[in-house]
Amino acid sequence: MGVLTAIFAREARLAWAGGGGAAGPAAFFLAAITLAPLAIGPAADLLAAAGPGILAFAALLSVLQSAERLFGDDFSDGTLDLYLLTPTSLAALCLAKVMGQASATLWPLPLIGVLGGLMYGLPPISALVLGAALLAAIPALALIAGFAGALAAGIKRGGLLIALIATPMMVPVLIFAAGAGRSAFAGDERAVANLLLTLAISLGTVALAPFGIAAAVRGRLG
């Protein structure tokens, strides 16, 4: 098995075995979208208009929810030290690691996003566009959470700090992913543009964030 495949597979396996896999983020996401209408009120037009935004925001929070574990465990049990002493580039290792965990834990978010969209009264097409936007947003969200998680690795009760570091970085993804859903609902032609911009942000993050994460890991171990 290739080195990166091995890391990807191990992270996915560990997320399933030790952390309940996708259950945590999925349950959190579901709880958040259940509570929002109770706070806003049952008015159908209001819910449909606010739906894409609430769903994208709740998805963002679900990603943050598991961010502390992403690098915290590997930091305290010495695994990161060992990653530093392999010939493979640390940035590539970190990318494989974050993606492995994301693929095991975050896959239900787009599905629940579509479901939630329908519950909030979005037309099916808009709900699907929102689901696609969430899918496109996941790499960026996971990597940003990973970057913040690496910077705050090993800090006691670092969850809050990670959220504070990561939220400003998640602003663009949130805008474009929610914007795709909102534009689709409004019948705006910018839905596709928003979707593409979400994808572009994700690709840009895939290209840049691993180097940031690797630098953060090095800085925290030194």
Binding site: L151, P168, V171, L208, R220, G222
Partner: peptide
């Protein structure tokens, strides 16, 4: 080191 990395990433952000 960690805060320097964060500050630099903040520019792109």
């Amino acid at each position: 080191r960690a805060s320097a990395i964060l500050a630099m990433a903040g520019v792109i952000n």
